[in-house]
Design a protein around this nucleic acid. Structure first.
Length: 172
DNA sequence: TTAGTGATATCC
DNA sequence: GATATCACTAAA
């Protein structure tokens, strides 16, 4: 039986939450009641100001403000003027941690995932908990997880771009 | 491999 | 005000 993840689930270290999110199901409820489901197959952890790949590395700004917020909050960010990338905030308040939803079972690529789900900037600052438009369910499956270096952050320097904070469902 | 896209941050 | 940067995708 599927259960909806609560803020308790997210109130842990990003490095604990990210692998746990792999295999969970994103459920997006459209305005007309249609439910879109997509199993998460890949996540990445972004953790703290010391993480050069994390947006919060440059300090607390209007844009990164939500990263410092409460666990379970949605951080949606427009990348390259075209693609919405979706994250969920983890950890305690004032800890800039987050987990990026990198791809789903059907739609690979963070931009395609949000496009399919109809996620845009209006979701930024919302929450996965008690939200009637989007939530995350756990159907009890526990896929095998493998790790890999994060992608798309070449600018972050040798150490941060090679750290294995990317979590992928086994079999991909 | 390269173009396109627009919000944000960082300069004048 | 202007420019540089970017957690990407699609087209070629």
């Amino acid at each position: 039986m599927a259960k909806i993840l609560t803020s308790e689930f997210f109130r842990r270290d990003a490095l604990d939450v990210a692998p746990d999110l792999v295999g969970k199901i994103l459920v997006r409820t459209l305005d007309d009641g249609t439910e879109l489901r997509e199993r998460i197959t890949e996540t990445e952890a972004y953790r703290g100001e010391e993480d050069k790949g994390c947006h919060a590395a440059k300090g607390r700004t209007k844009r990164t403000e939500v990263l410092y917020g409460e666990s379970g909050v949605i951080y949606v960010y427009l990348c390259y003027g075209v693609h919405w990338l979706m994250n969920v905030i983890t950890g305690e308040i004032d800890q800039p941690q987050g987990v990026l939803f990198r791809c789903g079972e059907v739609h690979n690529g963070p931009g395609k995932l949000t496009k399919f789900l109809g996620v845009d900037g209006s979701f930024n600052g919302g929450s996965f908990c008690g939200n009637d438009r989007i939530r995350i369910e756990d159907d009890g499956s526990r896929p095998g997880i493998r790790t890999a270096p994060r992608v798309g952050i070449d600018y972050a320097g040798d150490y941060w771009k090679n750290v294995e904070w990317r979590f992928i469902a086994d079999g991909k």
